[in-house]
């Protein structure tokens, strides 16, 4: 079940937790129970579609969850957060997946599709993503990550390490949030996926605070970093996650280059903890190995035990 809360209700709820900062005009705060009823009687938590046509994989995976219209309403404004950290192979969300996502949103009748980013245009061009956005008629909205006036403070009432986030104001001008990371290695905490991708909405100054001692990670602070990521995820909840697990780096992350494996999978769902837990298994890790996933589970953001989730795997 997906519950949509408009700005008025969000502010009312937020007032109870001391939130008074004005945010965008139509912020939609999603509350989900992590499961989707695709069709009568069938409950799917995560759809995984494999095959060498990544466009088809993406479309099919969303269909398995009941189709894009379950997530994107007519005339809604959709924010998409892809990963464009570098143009090195296996280090960014592939353009073909973004094309599929935009194309589905258009078919659902989205009023506006906005790809948001804190990274410069050259990253989008180098990765081939800018071209897709242009061809598909979506918008690329680049936010200067160092201009604090473009961000707004969001309190994190359940935050254990992070008490407030600084989210780009532009994000709140949207009704729907599609999180589109690539899962890959990360030298900081060994894994990146749906939860870590949300740092892409947060100001650089705030992201720096995830790393103790200013910008640099305190050598003993991997746990602190992962707690901050889980805390951030406790206030920003994607409507849908579409994860690129087609070809990605398992070493040299997050920037690359590094060894690439090619599971050719697109992983779609809402439960970020479960999705990330699933993705760890694609390269021989266990969900419990990743502190961030454990922290997300402790925050009740989702389920770490994959046996408790309905995972539908399909080959196209």
């Amino acid at each position: 079940m997906t519950v949509k809360i408009g700005r008025r209700e969000f502010v009312k709820k937020s007032a109870k937790i001391g939130f008074s900062t004005a945010v965008g005009s139509s912020f939609i705060y999603q509350l989900v129970d992590g499961s989707i009823h695709a069709s009568a009687g069938e409950k799917i938590d995560i759809a995984v579609v494999s095959g060498n046509d990544y466009f088809k994989n993406t479309i099919r995976a969303v269909e398995l969850l009941g189709g894009i219209k379950k997530f994107v309403q007519k005339k809604s404004k959709v924010a998409i957060l892809a990963n464009v950290q570098s143009r090195n192979p296996g280090a960014f969300t592939k353009p073909i997946l973004l094309r599929a996502a935009i194309s589905m949103c258009k078919k659902a009748g989205a009023g506006e599709i906005n790809c948001l980013s804190l990274l410069p245009r050259k990253n989008w061009e180098g990765a081939g993503l800018a071209q897709v956005i242009e061809e598909e008629g979506a918008n690329l909205k680049l936010i200067d990550r160092d201009n604090e006036t473009l961000f707004t403070t969001i309190p994190i009432p359940k935050g254990k390490a992070l008490k407030e986030a600084r989210i780009m104001k532009e994000f709140f001008n949207n009704d729907v949030f599609i999180n589109m990371p690539i899962t890959k290695d990360h030298a900081g905490n060994k894994f990146t996926g749906t939860m870590k991708n949300l740092m892409g909405l947060n100001s650089r100054k705030s992201n720096r605070s995830f790393h103790k001692e200013g910008w640099r990670t305190n050598r003993s602070s991997i746990e602190f970093l992962d707690q901050c990521i889980a805390d951030l995820n406790s206030v920003i909840k994607p409507t849908l996650c579409i994860v690129d697990a087609t070809e990605f780096i398992t070493t040299g992350g997050p920037f690359g280059p590094g060894n690439i494996i090619k599971p050719q999978k697109v992983v779609v769902g809402v439960d970020r903890v479960a999705i990330d837990a699933y993705c760890t298994t694609l390269w021989g890790m266990k969900p419990e190995d990743i502190i961030m996933i454990n922290k997300g589970y402790e925050h009740k953001l989702g389920e770490i035990d994959l046996k408790k989730k309905k995972i539908k795997e399909v080959i196209v």
Binding site: Q85, S86, H186, A187, G188, M199, H211, R216, T217, G253, P254, F255
Partner: peptide
């Protein structure tokens, strides 16, 4: 290189 810089440092 954003988060990848820590290891170099």
């Amino acid at each position: 290189i954003n988060g990848g810089a820590e290891i170099y440092h």
